[in-house]
Amino acid sequence: MSTASATAPSGNDPTDPTALSDDLLVALDGPIARITLNRPGKLNTMTPTMGKQLLDLVDEINVDDDIRVVILSGTGARAFSAGSDISVLDGYGSNWQLRNRVDYARAIWAIRKPVIAKIRGYCIGGGLEMALMSDIRYSDVTGRFGAGEIKLGWHGGAGNTQLLPRVVSPGKAMEMLFTGDLVDATEAHRNGLVDRLTEPEDLDAAVDDLATRIAASAPIATQLSKHLVRVAQSTSLDVGLAYENDMFTYCFTTADAAEGRTAFAEKRTPDFQGR
């Protein structure tokens, strides 16, 4: 996967700089892939084209062993993302076509590597769903969170009703879902929606530090840990514990596990290769 800065679309490879629109940017920084929603004048709202490009990009990220962690953010200080661009919603066609649309939030869910959402400003509607689909959410104090679809006559269709009550309390989730009101970053942090709260000038460094530390971990164990946490959210404890033990047994046979034991004995930092 090559580093990409977006220009006019002309190809089929989403990692090719000529294949992405200006609205979606991807850049590689060693083992870190940085995905940036780049419509600051529109609060980084998503279009169907952006959704399709994001889905293609996710496929590339999943098979690129050099990428170990993903940072998702929006351009500018006003918004992480305000979700779908309302002006294009009528273009989805029939109800059936809307049901079968490319779901940009589920694209984030499909990333196998750890995903950190870096949030400034508005994180609402589909933007909140993308943040919820991420594994870890860091926000500065300007963050504003809301499931505002109810104010327009519908509810979220890509995770707000399902993921929000798994992250915050069911009561807090329903308060947000029923009213569409915004929650500031301090309250979001208190309720568990934000995992770390920073001042605006400290957010980039905090996210980069976390991404760097995750990237240094054993990739197979990291991705399996992500998978097992999701299993824990949808199965019984007995089944989850048994499955965890099976995955642990597999992990223990990898070259990375052997490297970890050797590095521990030699009192050095392990060099994990994802094998």
Rank of each mutant, 00 (worst) to 15 (best):
L182I: 13
E149I: 06
A185C: 11
L203C: 03
A147N: 10
A110E: 15
D65K: 12
L182T: 13
A4Q: 06
S87H: 07
D59G: 15
A232Y: 11
M1H: 09
T49L: 12
G51W: 02
Y92A: 09
E149Y: 05
I119P: 04
L25F: 10
A205Q: 13
F145Q: 03
P48L: 03
G148N: 09
L224I: 14
I108E: 01
L132Y: 04
D256K: 07
K118W: 02
A4M: 07
T269Y: 08
R39K: 12
M247V: 15
D238A: 12
R268E: 08
D103R: 08
A188W: 04
D29H: 08
I86T: 11
R230A: 14
L128Y: 02
D238F: 10
S21Y: 06
L132R: 00
D256W: 01
A255M: 12
G121S: 07
Y250D: 11
P31F: 00
R99M: 12
N62V: 05
G74V: 07
A79S: 15
G260T: 05
L197D: 03
T15R: 03
A258I: 15
T18Y: 07
N38E: 05
W109F: 13
G125W: 02
G240Y: 07
I119Q: 00
D135L: 06
S225C: 13
I136T: 12
